[in-house]
Design a protein around this nucleic acid. Structure first.
Length: 335
DNA sequence: CGAGTAATAT
DNA sequence: TATATTACTC
């Protein structure tokens, strides 16, 4: 004879306590503890506080945007090209400023280039600190190492390519060993500080602009030649290739002539030109809704299956891109 | 709150 | 890709 108690559990006559517990799926105290840990961990993961609030980087703006056809939006963006001249000026400013004043604001002032903004200088400074800037005329053959991309045994590296932030941003990491622990508690505050330590020097120079806004004088001018093709460059390159979904890139020169190249100088560096800033127009066409704008969009997850992309590609080790018109680009950029 | 910087979008 | 933009930290 069975009966149901006031907790809704079925008590089977004759069963001992343990058998009854099992039949009613009542967790043991140990199981309860484990469940609580899982729940707490889940709460941490679901907590908005520990999620990136917005994606970083450039967002699509309405500035300079115009409607073309039904579902096509034409976005025209201008940006400054750092010519050798401009860069030289930048470096001279850095050199002139000396210790402790090598910050974008000071550099901007010393450069005294109309139209140039602090953010642009900051961005350029960042590029130079990372040894990732080259003079425009030295740009062309930047994909020497791309051939390694599809070589065997590199799948783990490919994962890293697509998930760079997961390695370096402790704020969003959750320790699997101790899931209840708040990420903030896990966050070694000096870890972020370490990112501000001096980075790779400017090319050919013994000392460099450093990440702590100090630099040691005597720095040579960066000749813009990328001697050190390090692993980071390769990662960045592969990374941006995967995200390059532009259907078309069109530039317009000062005569209004369209050019199919990605980037073009509107005018040559010229003493008569007021500011030596060369601007390009970047026109991109997007179909319908901007997928990047959808909620909870996670580019990392979208590319989590990146390995399969390479597996499906023939001769992965031999035929990787050397230019924009390569087979590879068509495969990944055609929309 | 503004500056500097890493990360990331375009 | 090179540059612009954003998030984050101090």
């Amino acid at each position: 004879m069975n009966n149901i108690d006031d907790t809704g559990n079925i008590n089977i006559v004759g069963d001992n306590e343990e058998q009854s517990r099992k039949k009613n799926n009542v967790p043991t105290s140990t199981e309860k503890k484990i469940n609580n840990i899982h729940k707490a961990a889940n709460d941490v993961i679901l907590n908005e506080k520990y999620k990136p609030k917005r994606k970083r980087g450039r967002k699509a703006t309405n500035q300079g945007e115009s409607q073309n056809n039904a579902n096509k939006t034409v976005t025209r963006k201008c940006y400054t090209v750092w010519t050798m001249d401009l860069h030289k000026k930048f470096m001279e400013a850095v050199d002139q400023l000396g210790d402790g004043r090598c910050c974008p604001v000071e550099i901007l002032e010393v450069m005294n280039v109309p139209g140039l903004t602090r953010l642009q200088v900051a961005s350029h400074l960042q590029k130079c600190r990372n040894n990732n800037w080259r003079a425009p005329k030295e740009r062309k053959s930047t994909r020497q190492l791309s051939g390694q991309l599809g070589s065997s045994g590199e799948s783990s590296t490919q994962q890293q390519v697509c998930h760079p932030q997961l390695q370096v941003d402790p704020q969003y990491l959750i320790s699997l060993d101790n899931p209840v622990l708040s990420p903030a508690e896990n966050n070694d505050s000096s870890a972020l500080q370490r990112q501000h330590e001096p980075l790779v020097g400017m090319l050919g120079s013994q000392e460099s602009i450093t990440g702590s806004t100090y630099y040691k004088s005597g720095m040579e001018l960066n000749d813009g030649d990328l001697h050190a093709q390090n692993n980071y460059d390769w990662k960045v390159e592969a990374y941006s290739m995967m995200f390059d979904t532009d259907v078309e890139n069109v530039t317009v020169n000062d005569l209004g002539v369209e050019n199919a190249n990605f980037q073009q100088y509107i005018c040559e560096p010229n003493i008569s030109h007021p500011n030596n800033i060369i601007t390009t127009s970047h026109v991109s066409y997007t179909e319908g809704n901007d997928s990047y704008e959808r909620e909870n969009y996670d580019p990392y997850l979208d590319f989590i299956d990146i390995d399969s992309l390479f597996e499906n590609h023939e001769s992965p080790s031999s035929n990787l891109p050397n230019g924009h018109d390569s087979e590879f680009d068509q495969v990944f950029c055609d929309d």
